[in-house]
Simulated assay, not measured.
Amino acid sequence: FIMLVHSLKLPLKRPALLKVTNLTLTLAIVIFVLIFAYLLRPDTYPLLRLASLLPIIWFSYRFGIVGAITSATLINALIIVEAIITDEPSNTYISQLFILANAITSMVLGAAITELKRKNVELKKINRALTKQLDQNSRLAAKMVTVQENERKHLSQELHDELGQNLTALKTDLAILSHISNEKTQTFVTTLKNNANAMYDSVYQLMHYLRPRELDELGLKKAVVQGRLKSLLNQANISYEVSFTLEQALSKEHEIAVYRICQEAVTNCIKHSNANSLTINIKSSEHFSELEIRDNGDSVKLTDNTGHYGLAFMQERSMALGGSFEIINDGGFTIKVKLPIKTVG
C-alpha cells in the first residue's frame, strides 16, 4: 500500500501508469486471497500471517537494508497492536514468534540485497568503462585501417609513377635493342626482355595488392564481378558467381573493406582449398551490410606455414568496423561478415 501511494506521486505517463496498475492489482489480489482463505478456513489464520513476509521481501529487493528494516518495523508494530487488542495469551505467543521471524528475515534479506546491489553498481561501472574502452579501440582500429589504406594507395601510386614507368622504358629499349643486335647477342637480349617482363608483372601484382586501382576506377560491383578476382579464379579453373543486392551505395571505407575481404577469401580458396566453385553474395539494408563467401572445398591442401593469417586479416577488418565475423566449415567453407554501416545516397 505504501508503494502504491508513493507511485501515485509520479508523473502520469505510460511507465508510471503501468507501475500503479501493477501495484493496485497485486494489492487487490493479495487482499482477496487472504480474505477468501480466512472466510473459507478461519482456523488457518496463524498460517495466513505468513503473508506478512511478502512486504519484507519486496522492500528488501527494492531498497536493501533500509527497506527491510522499515517494512519489518511497521509489520511488527501492527502485530503488536493486534496482540494488544485481542489480549489472548496464545495470540501473544504466536505474535512473538512472528516478530522474531520478521526481524531475522529482514536483517538477512536486507544485508544480502544491499551487498548484491553494491556489487551490481560496481559491475555496471566496470561495464561502462569497458564499453567506453571498446568504443575507443574500435575507433582507433578503424583509423588505423584508414591510415593503412592511404599509405598503400600512396605507395602503389609511387610504384606506378616511378618504377612502373622505368620498367616500361626498359622494355622499350630492349625491344629496340633486339632489332639492332646481331645473332650473338640476341639470346642475351631475349633473356633481358623476359626478366624485364617478369619484373613488370611482379610490380603490377604488387601495385594491385597494395591498392586495387579497379576499385577506384570501376567501383565495387564491377571490380568484384569483372575484375582481377574473376581472372585469378578462372586461371585456377574455379567457377565464380557473384550476387549483389544493394539498396544504396556503400561508403568508401566499407567498399574497401568488402573488397579486401573478398580478395583475401579468393586467395585462400586458390591456395588452400580443393574447391572448384566459389560464390560471393553481397547485400545491404538500411543499417547493415552482409557479405557471404562460400566455396565447395571438401578438404584443405597440406601446405606449410599457412598460419591462418588471411582469416585473421579478414576478422580484423570486420572488427575494425564494429562488425561480426563467422566461419562455417561444413560441406564447404563459408565466411559470413555483417557490418553495421552508414550508407550514402
Rank of each mutant, 00 (worst) to 15 (best):
N194D: 10
E316S: 02
I65Q: 14
K342H: 07
R260E: 15
E162Y: 08
L116D: 12
H208P: 06
V344Y: 13
L206Y: 03
N150D: 04
T245F: 03
A141I: 01
R228E: 14
N237Q: 08
L246Y: 14
T92A: 15
P55V: 04
A198F: 12
I84E: 05
E88V: 02
I176F: 11
L74G: 08
G227P: 08
C269Y: 12
E82D: 15
R118L: 06
R213T: 01
R14L: 07
A265S: 01
I113S: 08
L78M: 13
R41L: 12
I256D: 07
H160L: 04
L50D: 07
T86V: 14
G332Q: 05
K117F: 10
E151S: 03
L12E: 11
K13N: 09
S202T: 04
L206M: 10
A142N: 00
Q96S: 13
L116E: 08
V300H: 12
G307A: 04
H254Y: 03
L100E: 13
P15A: 05
P212N: 03
L10T: 02
H160T: 07
V337Q: 00
A175R: 02
T131G: 03
A142D: 00
W58I: 06
Q263S: 14
L233H: 07
E183I: 10
S7L: 09
R118F: 13
D330C: 02
S284P: 10
N195D: 14
L8M: 10
T279K: 09
G297A: 11
E214N: 06
P42V: 00
K19A: 07
F188C: 04
I69C: 12
A265G: 01
N305A: 14
S181T: 13
I341W: 00
L100R: 06
R260H: 13
